[in-house]
Simulated assay, not measured.
Amino acid sequence: MDLIHEDSNHAMLGAIDRYELDLAFGSDENDFECTMAISDHCCSIGDYLAMQDVVNGHVKYTEYGGRIDGVSVDTGKETVTYSGRTWHGILAKKILCPDDGQNYLILAGDANEVLGFLIQRTGLGDLFEASDQKAGIAITSYQMDRYIDAYTGIRKMLKCAGAKLVMYYREGKVHLSAVPLVDYSQDEEWDSDQMNFQISSNERPVNHLICLGKGDLSERMVRHLYMDARGNISETQTFFGVDEVTETYDYSNVESEEELITGGTQRLQETWAAANTLETDFENNTEYDVGDIVGARETITGVTIKRDIVKKILKVNSSGINVECQIGE
């Protein structure tokens, strides 16, 4: 891959030859550092860096890149480091607010059209654009979390539609689109004979949550949420007797039943994730995207689990290029 340097107006200044790059995006960080000898100093605040490759004679544009926000110099090491937000980090530093007088931002339509709307809403239309092709993925009255950052909000919205956010930078624009996420656990499940990982599974986490909203005594808002053996949440009970594990969820300042159910659902999802964990990092898997699903099976106990890819880390140095994926709850 080549690291392309552009000025603040996206005029190409050439490829950078000698450097070290540490870039991460996903559940956190969403930033980068690029370090080189001070004698090779070539970048300014406001410039852009983007990785691209040539495959079979064709340029392959990637999501690895961002805007330089800061410069630091180490005179002892004689190095200069450029730091900034990745494309994902630029989105993450925009907050999605409800319209005046509204409790929530409600979104509906084809996923790519919704992405285009959100780009304009965040004021990022000069740098970002959504695909003008129909995604074929429907967003149906999605209630965006209040005051959530745009990157996290978009990923959560698309996940609810079985989709993921993909992007690449080309000639001054970050191109966004929604595509179906890939569940690699269906046909590429790892086992403990292939790689090392830590896996745990608790088949009886909290599966009945009594959600307590505003009001007092008999006037208090109460809703019951249940989780089945696959982690699906509804208002239909599936576990009884000794298999029923119950807790209360106190949300006394809630404004509506809908908000109470949303909060309770998130609490049960967190409980499910904490009860079923998979910890491993795996390298050189550039085909996996943040939002895809991977699975693992421990061969002796037979414990199986699947988890989302929540973060990717790209490191470039004299030894070459390394891409690491991290799995989250």
Results as ranks from 00 to 15, higher is better:
residue 237 Q to H: 01
residue 174 V to S: 03
residue 72 S to P: 01
residue 277 T to G: 12
residue 280 T to L: 15
residue 207 N to T: 03
residue 43 C to Y: 05
residue 225 L to E: 06
residue 79 T to I: 10
residue 295 G to D: 10
residue 109 G to R: 08
residue 102 Q to I: 10
residue 265 T to L: 01
residue 202 N to M: 05
residue 132 D to R: 10
residue 202 N to I: 05
residue 139 I to C: 04
residue 327 I to G: 02
residue 33 E to H: 09
residue 205 P to M: 07
residue 184 Y to W: 15
residue 218 S to N: 13
residue 315 K to F: 04
residue 284 N to T: 02
residue 281 D to C: 07
residue 279 E to F: 01
residue 260 L to W: 04
residue 317 N to F: 12
residue 292 D to A: 06
residue 205 P to I: 00
residue 97 C to G: 09
residue 259 E to P: 08
residue 144 M to T: 09
residue 224 H to F: 04
residue 255 E to A: 14
residue 118 L to T: 03
residue 64 Y to P: 01
residue 240 F to E: 13
residue 75 T to E: 15
residue 248 T to N: 14
residue 111 A to E: 06
residue 207 N to L: 08
residue 11 A to N: 15
residue 207 N to V: 02
residue 201 S to K: 07
residue 159 K to I: 01
residue 197 F to T: 09
residue 318 S to Y: 11
residue 269 Q to A: 14
residue 168 Y to Q: 12
residue 154 I to Q: 06
residue 13 L to G: 05
residue 263 G to R: 05
residue 287 E to P: 00
residue 54 V to C: 13
residue 158 L to M: 05
residue 51 M to F: 07
residue 179 V to Y: 04
residue 258 E to R: 14
residue 301 T to I: 07
residue 210 I to A: 12
residue 289 D to E: 13
residue 129 E to T: 00
residue 240 F to C: 00
residue 160 C to T: 14
residue 174 V to E: 01
